[in-house]
Each structure stands twice: as C-alpha cells, then as structure tokens.
Amino acid sequence: MATVELLFSPLPEHVRTARLVAAAVARRSGVDEAVLDEVRLAVGEACTRAVGLHMAHGVEGPVRVSLIEDEKKFAIEVADEAPHRRFSVPGASVGTAPLSSSGGTGNGHAEAEGALVPGARGEIPEPTAEEDEGDGEMGLAVISGLVDDVEVSADENGGVIRMSWPTAPESLVP
C-alpha cells in the first residue's frame, strides 16, 4: 500500500491540506528541499483538477491521493472518480460541463487556459460571458512543465495522475 493515503471530499478548501500532507511526506522521504515547492505545486494542481472534475460531473466520492515512498523515488498518485470521455492533449477538453464553485460569482476556477500553454497565442481574447471557466487543462500544463516523470491516464471510471521525484540516498536524510 501507499506510505500515506489521503482521501478528501471534492471541495476546494481541502486542496491545501493535500498539498501540506504531500510536502511533509515528500520531505520525510528524502525529496530535495529545493524540489518541495514543485511537489507542493504539482500535487495542488492535480488535486485542483480532480476537485473540478468531481464538481463538474456531480461526483460526490472522494479524491484519493497516494503518497508512495520507494527506494529511489517518491511517487504521488492523484485519482479522481469522474468519467473521462477522452484524455487530454493541450487544447482538448476533458468532460463537457463547466466547472462551478459553491460561492460568490460561482467561478473560482481557471480562466483563459488557451493563453497559458507555452507556445499558445500571446494575445488575450476579449471578455465573454463564459470567459471565467476552465477545465483543468492549465493545471496539467503546469504539471507537465514542472515534473519530469508524469503519467496521466483516464477512462470512464476516473483518471489518475502519477508523478514521481528522485529521493536522496538514505544516509543523507536527516
């Protein structure tokens, strides 16, 4: 089993908890201090995307984060239970329903992801009524920019983002 496993309700307020737990376990596993910020950001992006998918599809089940300590690497798996119709190349969309959040203007999610992918157009489109919704693809772009070893898979029952980082030899871990 995973070294540490975390299940949380698919709500934005719990993503921070997942980041903190992942960073703590990564540090203990010997991931370099300089890389912990990347671990924190990557797991946050993966969890944010999972929460968005659950909310978009009305899935109430938990997001599952598995933190796996290995001899030479530290791996994180973030699994969602949302039905994925197809899986993502940048620019493609996963799922169809727009994300929505529970409070305020109801659009606390990523905007204008098209402009955020490296190599995408530099100009910013004019605001439109639908401008403020994203579908998690920007988060994936960030993850792939951050993490060398990343693998994304999905089917109709859910998706998993697997990421790993090398760990220092045990003798170097305090």
Binding site: G44, G108, A112, P127, D132
Partner: peptide, 12 residues
C-alpha cells in the same frame, strides 16, 4: 503560494 487557478484570475 500561487497555482494555475490564481494565474487564471490574474489573466481574467
């Protein structure tokens, strides 16, 4: 801490 959601808000 800043993630892609925050970036999206800044772009907006």
């Amino acid at each position: 801490f800043l993630d892609s959601t925050g970036l999206g808000v800044l772009v907006g």
